[in-house]
């Protein structure tokens, strides 16, 4: 399956795109996805230990399962307000 990961702010700048597509063999966890992102988009690697990942618009722990069709987003430390 293909997992789409939306990028924002510095993550978008570092990767040079708004969405990263990761091709995976089978269901995986958010933690697996974080590791895959680091290897497939090396520009993001320095940022990844500091980002939270969201699945379907909710913050997810590294143990959360990612299924086909889920929307994943990479959320660097926020600065609204």
């Amino acid at each position: 399956m293909i997992v789409h990961v939306r990028l924002f702010a510095a993550a978008r700048e570092l990767a040079g795109r708004e969405v990263v597509e990761i091709l995976v063999e089978e269901a995986l966890t958010v933690g697996d996805l974080r590791a895959l992102l680091a290897t497939q988009v090396p520009a993001l690697a320095p940022l990844l230990p500091h980002v939270r990942l969201a699945v379907n618009s909710s913050y997810a722990s590294d143990a959360t399962q990612v299924a086909a069709g889920d929307e994943v987003a990479c959320i660097p430390p926020v600065s609204g307000g």
């Binding site: 924002f8 940022l47 500091h50 913050y59 660097p76 926020v78 600065s79 609204g80 307000g81």
Partner: peptide, 24 residues
């Protein structure tokens, strides 16, 4: 300020432009 996924980008008078990511 901790949880809502919104980011600000500073446009400084010295010409620098940067996303603000507290703690990075």
């Amino acid at each position: 300020k901790q949880d809502v996924p919104i980011w600000k980008q500073e446009h400084w008078a010295d010409g620098q432009v940067e996303w603000v990511h507290p703690g990075l």
